[in-house]
């Protein structure tokens, strides 16, 4: 991969990788570490890619794999996601509430719902990315939506 190609891809997909990692790990510092690692792997990847869609899929898959390794690591930073959330500039309180509610979901629901509703992956594609059966993806989406519904209702109650 040439430096020009890498610069183009890093600039275009750094947010994608960072968002996936942040959703998985709920931790900005770890997400930044993962982002660096993933792009280093991209730079060193010897196999050619079929298309840009292929590259994006590869980036997300490698990001998820690196996140899983990080979760198993005995050392993780102690950053609170609330500090990072407070640094974000949302258009409305509802967006802020939604971010908090998604981040409050258990990891196994947080990642599928992000990939489905933000990255527009199908349940079959998410199934492959996460190496879980498609019906499990559907069930997790169902439960995640129910949890979000409850959490957002609770948030609204305290407005």
């Amino acid at each position: 991969m040439t430096d020009t190609q890498f610069t183009y891809l890093a600039t275009k997909y750094i947010d994608t990788v960072f968002r996936v990692a942040l959703n998985f790990l709920k931790n900005k510092a770890d997400a930044e570490d993962i982002t660096q690692t993933v792009f280093l792997k991209l730079y060193r990847e010897p196999k050619p890619f079929d298309s840009e869609a292929h590259i994006k899929h590869w980036l997300i898959r490698v990001t998820l794999n690196e996140c899983k390794k990080t979760v198993c690591s005995p050392f993780r930073s102690a950053e609170n996601i609330d500090d990072y959330a407070n640094s974000l500039r949302f258009d409305t309180p509802e967006h802020s509430d939604l971010f908090d509610a998604v981040m409050d979901l258990p990891q196994k629901y947080r990642v599928p719902i992000f990939l489905y509703y933000y990255e527009n992956y199908s349940t079959a594609e998410i199934s492959k990315l996460l190496s879980i059966p498609t019906p499990t993806v559907a069930t997790r989406l169902h439960r995640a939506r129910a949890l979000l519904k409850t959490k957002l209702q609770e948030v609204n109650d305290h407005v």
């Binding site: 890498f6 610069t7 750094i14 947010d15 990788v17 968002r19 660096q36 967006h95 939604l98 971010f99």
Partner: peptide, 20 residues
């Protein structure tokens, strides 16, 4: 709303610089 919310999440300029 999901898109509008997570559109506000960005990797920092410093991180991009480090990656490059």
């Amino acid at each position: 709303k999901m898109k509008a919310t997570f559109d506000q999440v960005h990797a920092s300029d410093a991180l991009l610089t480090e990656v490059l």
